[in-house]
Write a protein that binds this DNA or RNA. Structure first.
Lengths: 116, 116
DNA sequence: CGAATTCGTTACGGAGGCGTATTGTTCCCT
DNA sequence: AGGGAACAATACGCCTCCGTAACGAATTCG
């Protein structure tokens, strides 16, 4: 099992994947929002607004708004940190987990159809 | 050279890739715009507004606007079809080719760092 | 030739994005 | 306790996006 993905194959994968998402009427997230979502689901908690902003090198309102939007889709939730009530902890949701899982499956499926 | 990309690996790849793009201050394109761009650069010409709209299952103004935006970044150009002057042909640009190439390279690089 | 069709674009009202600057809480520290 | 720092959210003005509907230009067809 190797991952020697040539650039041309990577492009086709990206194309097919993006196509699948647009085609499926999935919420049209921006690359930034996607990066936030995947960070929360792939990296180790806890995730704060400040931490996410620093990690992505964007301003805090960008994160707040991304959480607003994706929260509306129920892909994420916010919770106040009990130990330091200034902080907001970003949490996963069932819907979000399913959505992320679908992303992975879709991409893996598209990778399977790549020409050698 | 195989492409058995597991879903979890696909997600990490997507995460790293999105991260790289956001980090590099690349124009924050939406998934739709990315799909349009890659279609033009990967599929065989000619590409018309109508054709792209049909292929992506979106309305024509969506394509027009995507061309406006990416045209501003000089990633694409429009040209009137001489043989049927109702049509607009979407064409590649040097900047666009470089940008797309960079996308492929970035993704291939991220794939190389994937855990087995 | 004139009417109907086919293009891409534009207009419109509404929604959401941006960065900067400000606000309200909560915590820290002396 | 009280002043300052840290945090997330909000306000602001501006820009881009959306879908629906209307539009002008070009072509096709009767």
């Amino acid at each position: 099992m190797s991952f020697e993905l040539r650039a041309t194959q990577a492009l086709k994968l990206l194309h097919d994947f993006g196509f699948g998402l647009v085609h499926d009427q999935a919420p049209d997230l921006s690359l930034r929002q996607l990066a936030v979502l995947l960070t929360v689901y792939l990296e180790r908690p806890p995730h704060t607004v400040r931490g996410l902003a620093a990690k992505l090198k964007v301003t805090k309102p960008v994160i707040t708004r991304a959480l607003d939007t994706m929260g509306r889709f129920e892909l994420l939730t916010r919770r106040r940190d009990p130990s330091d009530r200034r902080n907001v902890i970003v949490q996963r949701t069932v819907k979000g987990a399913l959505y992320v899982e679908r992303l992975g499956d879709l991409m893996a499926a598209k990778a399977r159809n790549l020409p050698r």
